[in-house]
C-alpha cells in the first residue's frame, strides 16, 4: 500500500508540523482526512528520505491504517473455515487477507513427542 501526506502548517517556534495523511488510492481528497500536529524534533530530519521514513513510522502508518479501517465497506462479505466445498461458495463474497510474504499454512498431523 502507498500513502501520501500533505503538510498544512510549519511551526518552527514550536517545532511542529500539521500534517494530513491518506492512502494513495484513498476514495476522498486528502483534505477530507483530519490533520494531526506532529513534533518534528523527534523525526529524523537528516534528509528527505529519512524524514519521510520516520514521519511514516512515527505517525503516518497508524493514521493511514486507521482511516482504511474506518472507511465504509461497500461489499458485504463473510469468512469461511473448515472443510472446503467449492460448489457452496459460488455466488458468495468471502473475506480474506492480502499478504505479500510467502508464508503459507502447512496443515499436518499432530505429532506427540
Amino acid at each position: 500500500m502507498k500513502a501520501i501526506f500533505k503538510i498544512e502548517e510549519y511551526l518552527p517556534k514550536t517545532t511542529q508540523i500539521v500534517v494530513r495523511f491518506a492512502r494513495l488510492h484513498a476514495p476522498e481528497p486528502i483534505e477530507k482526512y483530519h490533520a494531526v500536529a506532529v513534533d518534528y524534533s523527534r523525526l529524523d530530519c537528516y534528509d528527505s528520505e529519512s524524514f519521510v521514513k520516520s514521519l511514516m513510522r512515527e505517525v503516518g502508518n497508524y493514521q493511514v491504517k486507521k482511516y482504511e479501517d474506518k472507511e465504509s465497506i461497500i461489499n458485504e462479505s463473510e469468512t469461511i473455515s473448515g472443510k472446503l466445498d467449492l460448489s457452496s461458495l459460488v455466488g458468495r463474497t468471502i473475506e480474506c487477507k492480502v499478504e505479500n510474504d510467502r508464508k503459507e499454512i502447512l496443515k499436518m498431523r499432530r505429532v506427540e513427542l
Binding site: E9, L11, T14, Q16, A35, V36, A37, D39, R42, V59
Partner: peptide, 17 residues
Amino acid sequence: GSGGSNATETTGGTGGN
C-alpha cells in the same frame, strides 16, 4: 513508550507509539 505530541490551537497532537 514514546511521548505524545503537543497540540496546536486548532489541531490535536498525535499519540506516541
